[in-house]
Design a protein around this nucleic acid. Structure first.
Length: 312
RNA sequence: GGAUGGGUGCCCGAGUGGCGAAGGGGCCAGACUGUAAAUCUGGUGCCGACUGGCAUAACACCGCAGGUUCGACUCCUGCUCCAUCCA
């Protein structure tokens, strides 16, 4: 029988962190983050990392472990995450995956093979140049020649996706594994999927409050510090919401007030996209937190649900 | 009191006789196999499954009220509000 992992997902600011910690305590688990920004060192406030206190309560993995100057990718994530899951199993701990990065979650709950082709910087640059000078259609034509199936799936405006598709074919000799919207569940373990959601308007309000709190907690200084470390707006880590907008402010492109508005805006849009992604999961148990008045009781409900699934 | 510019759909904003009004934002929905907090797509007056229907009865119909015209957001008149400048 395959071993079981718990996966807690939901839009940003819904309260995943708090739930995951309490559930880990209840079920003798450890938390494995599935968050593309929280993996980075020094990016604490803006990525809404768990606090030091929280990190001390339950052991966490893949939080603050990557130098933001370093290259990082979903493939890298998958490799390390799987390592940690096995490691937790070996110590008898229940792995609790918690995070809002859909692709990272997919890389664990489905069989996804990122190994076929590594990134090829020079080819990427060449293709980007082609797109810049000749337009997206030219790239799409080229993709059609080497991988018609992929070309059918990818819109000519989606430069990034086309570049990757071409890269895969030209370096690996075959295209991205075809998929028809049906994912193959992971062969390594079974996932108990928990979705946390809340009324949209309430979520949006929480996001705005949290952004204000981040600013008060010193987000601007955090960004200053990262820039001082040599990070620039071109680094992926600095493309995170809360970071890219403040760079603009620090470069005097707009006021702090405007930067804050942009952060709120982008966070809201992000939350929405996350929901689009998560709604596709079947076998997920959604918990609507809209009317939750008692946090502990709510945690208890989720815990009991997981327990019922662990026994089966 | 005088001069000039302007009041357009949730917001910004284009439009100078055929507009249920470009474009952008927001919002809603969707896609997603090595950058994913990224990248991209569609919808958004109302009804509807539609290349369909509805503007003298949901609402709205380009600040308000009239006028000219087959027809006006676009032209004319008056009023009103805002901005800047002069008194």
């Amino acid at each position: 029988m395959k071993k079981k992992i718990v996966v807690i997902i939901g839009p940003t600011a819904v309260g995943k962190t708090k739930y995951a910690i309490r559930i880990a305590q209840n079920l003798d688990g450890e938390i494995l983050s599935a968050d593309s920004m929280q993996v980075y060192e020094h990016m604490n406030i803006g990525s809404a990392k768990p606090t030091d206190e929280e990190l001390a309560t339950v052991r966490h993995h893949l939080i603050g472990e990557v130098d933001p100057l370093q290259e990082w990718s979903a493939a890298e994530y998958q490799k390390k995450a799987k390592f940690w899951i096995d490691e937790m199993f070996s110590r008898g701990k229940l792995p609790i995956i918690c995070g809002g990065t859909g692709l990272y979650v997919n890389s664990l709950i489905y069989d996804m093979d990122f190994s076929t082709a590594k990134g090829d910087e020079s080819l990427r640059k060449e293709l980007q140049l082609l797109a810049d000078t000749m337009g997206g259609q030219a790239l799409h034509d080229r993709l059609t020649k080497v991988d018609p199936t992929a070309a059918e799936r990818i819109h000519p405006n989606n430069i990034k996706k086309m570049i990757r598709a071409i890269e895969v074919v030209e370096t690996a000799g075959k295209g991205i594994p075809a998929f028809d919207g049906v994912f193959q569940k992971s062969g390594d373990y079974d996932s108990i999927m928990i979705g946390l959601n809340i009324d949209r308007q309430i979520l949006y309000n929480r996001i705005e409050q949290r952004v204000d709190a981040m600013i008060e907690a010193g987000l601007v200084d955090e960004v200053r510090m990262l820039l001082a470390l040599g990070l620039t707006e071109d680094d992926n880590s600095m493309k995170g919401i809360g970071y890219k907008e403040l760079i603009g402010f620090l470069q005097n492109e707009y006021s702090l007030k405007e930067a804050v508005m942009k952060i709120k805006q982008n966070s809201r849009n992000y939350a929405k996209r996350q929901m689009t992604w998560f709604r596709r999961y079947d076998n997920i148990k959604w918990f609507d937190l809209t009317d939750t008045v008692n946090f502990e009781q709510s945690v208890q409900e989720v815990t009991e649900y997981i327990q019922s699934k662990l026994v089966v």
